[in-house]
Design a protein around this nucleic acid. Structure first.
Length: 234
DNA sequence: GCGACAG
DNA sequence: ATCTTGTCGC
């Protein structure tokens, strides 16, 4: 049963690039598939928000991914899954997705139910070619995705106001590619950008809701802890 | 050419 | 990302 316009995740994985030029070509080819015209799920929607993260052991060439599903309203952990694989791509700024996505997809596939939103470590639209990790994961899965990064990468921003919830534009030249968001008073902001099927306002609202107690969203914290454990046990 | 550069 | 002790503070 073919769906016109849809792309096959399996096919993309079979043709996973092995060098940087191929990888950039994949980003350029898939970029137009990212949907930026949907508002996306509203905070507190009925369903799960899933955090994904990856940990590496370069010496053993092992990568471990974790996917942790939280109730979108209560933030309670309702499911979690891990996957272990071989490191398939070096870390190259701008090509992070090729290092993380295969194992992340494996972990996501082991969840009991379909996520309503996936929160990635890193960027979506805020990317040199406007197709970061969150964009790529969204296009391959069809799921709404956002990127929440701890660093501004190469982009500029003015510090947001001191209060929780304050934002400022994350800029690539004159273009707003995301937002700096203060999730807690007195801490560095996080850097939010859209991936797939959600708008920036909602991406920030979800991030703020998920970061009720700490600087980083609970999804990120839970996935980070779990993938480290999975790596240690691998 | 050099440095910077999500994780 | 990862290598890594103690330490200041709630």
């Amino acid at each position: 049963m073919d769906t016109p316009g849809a792309l096959s995740c399996d096919d993309e994985l079979r043709h996973w690039p092995t060098d940087e030029d191929q990888a950039r070509a994949v980003q350029d080819r898939l970029r137009s598939s990212a949907r930026l015209d949907e508002p996306g799920p509203e905070p507190g929607f009925e369903g799960t928000v899933v955090g994904v993260d990856v940990a590496y052991d370069d010496a053993r060439d092992v990568v471990a991914a974790a996917a942790v599903a939280l109730d979108a309203r209560t933030r309670a952990v309702v499911d979690e899954a891990t996957a272990v694989g071989q490191i398939s791509f070096p870390y190259v700024p701008g090509l992070l997705a090729f290092r993380e996505i295969p194992t992340v997809l494996d972990a996501l596939g082991r969840l009991a139910r379909t996520p309503g939103l996936v929160v990635c470590d890193g960027y979506g639209l805020a990317h040199p070619r406007r197709f970061g990790l969150a964009s790529h994961l969204g296009v391959l899965t069809g799921l709404p995705t956002i990127g929440v990064a701890k660093n501004p990468f190469t982009f500029r921003y003015e510090p947001p106001g001191p209060d929780r919830g304050a934002t400022s534009p994350l800029l690539d030249g004159d273009e707003e590619v995301g937002r700096a968001l203060r999730t807690q008073q007195g801490v560095k902001p996080v850097f939010v950008s859209v991936g797939h099927r959600i708008d920036l306002d909602r991406a920030c609202a979800h991030t703020l809701h998920l970061a009720a107690r700490y600087r980083l969203p609970e999804t990120t914290r839970a996935a980070d802890a779990l993938c480290r454990r999975a790596l240690a046990d691998a």
